[in-house]
């Protein structure tokens, strides 16, 4: 078994942000194992993605350019990745833990009866083994997890690893045929409503969240203004979602999204342990709350004890001025 593979998720002809992160992490793993790094590029009209992968530091690209792979379906991508892995026996396959990546890793590991580690937040190479740090028990404990025999398939959490930088390198990709014909793919995608243009919570480098303290749907308006000025994404606590003030897709926490932005500003959020489970890995946490005893202050680097309806607009005004908006 040899080679470290990295799956290069892409859309509209460019590598996904998470792929840049995984390529960065995979490069380190390949160097430590003294192995080549192979970018796996599936899609349709993806020669540009292969070029991008070379530029981001992979040594080789194995790609498949086929209409069946245009819109990701695990029934098309899974058998192809499994086939390639059986044929070429890589030591490690690293995949970003997006919805697509999670599907692909799970299907492929099941098909190959391989060991799978999902949602790593840190990795280190120990001899021939890639050891992952991952959250367990509702994100309240950590675990060191690794595959102890055979192919190691691992997914990496979004925003947990720095992005690979441009190297200026180029190369020639090897293109292989898809292995499943359209007629043999049972799932037919009949509609897709893209979220393009909005910043997704898991990709955002800045998240501003509101909780019970925003006191109603209109309470999210000042928070939205700060989100717009900072170019971030809007988050919410379960209390705000359950009250019907904001849709579920904004929920951060144990039964919502797990995020790790550079900056997390919690407005009117007390910081219940279930909320902490979803945001405690944020780099800098700011708490704005009326209650000086709110548990969120124990997690925060900076805090303002005060009324969010005064503090948030004041922050918006300052950043508007300083960022020239």
């Amino acid at each position: 078994m040899s080679g470290v593979w990295v799956w290069v998720e892409n859309s509209n002809g460019t590598a996904a942000t998470i792929s840049r992160e995984v390529i960065g992490a995979a490069r380190t793993v390949a160097d430590e194992l003294n192995e080549d790094l192979v970018g796996i590029v599936f899609g349709h009209e993806v020669s540009g993605v292969a070029d991008e992968a070379f530029d981001l530091g992979v040594d080789e690209v194995v790609g498949s350019d086929d209409e069946t792979l245009a819109h990701f379906r695990v029934e098309a991508a899974g058998p192809l990745l499994a086939h390639l892995a059986q044929e070429r026996e890589p030591a490690v396959i690293l995949i970003g833990d997006s919805t697509q990546g999670n599907d692909l890793a799970a299907w492929t590991a099941a098909e190959l009866d391989a060991g799978l580690v999902v949602d790593a937040v840190a990795i280190e190479v120990d001899d021939e083994t890639v050891k992952a740090t991952r959250s367990v028990y509702a994100n309240k404990l950590l675990s060191t997890t690794f595959v102890k025999e055979g192919l190691q398939i691992m997914t990496l959490r979004s925003r947990a690893f720095p992005q690979a930088e441009s190297t200026g390198d180029t190369g020639d990709a090897e293109w292989v045929d898809a292995v499943v014909a359209e007629d043999d793919i049972p799932s037919k995608v009949t509609g897709f409503e893209s979220k393009e243009g909005t910043v997704s919570l898991t990709d955002a480098s800045i998240i501003i969240s509101g909780g019970r303290g925003v006191a109603g749907p209109e309470g999210f308006e000042p928070i939205q203004e700060l989100v717009d000025v900072l170019g971030g994404a809007m988050g919410a606590s379960r209390a705000a979602v359950d009250a019907g003030w904001i849709p579920y897709e904004h929920q951060v926490g144990q039964t919502g999204k797990t995020v790790s932005p550079d900056l997390y500003i919690a407005c009117g959020i007390s910081g219940a342990i279930q909320h902490q489970a979803g945001m405690r890995t944020s780099k800098v946490i700011v708490a704005i709350n009326k209650d000086p005893d709110a548990p969120i202050f124990a997690l925060a680097r900076y805090g303002i004890v005060g009324d969010l309806f005064k503090v948030v607009p004041a922050l918006t005004a300052v950043f508007k001025e300083r960022l020239g908006k």
Binding site: A114, G115, L116, V117, V136, Y137, K140, L141, L142, S143, T144, T145, F146, V147, K148, E149, G150, R280, A287, F297, A298, L299, A300, R301, Y302, G303
Partner: peptide, 17 residues
């Protein structure tokens, strides 16, 4: 094929608010 036997508590965040 997977070892997850080493489980530990999350180290507290450094510094205070």
């Amino acid at each position: 094929k997977v070892d997850w036997s080493h489980v530990y508590t999350i180290p507290p965040r450094e510094g205070s608010v």
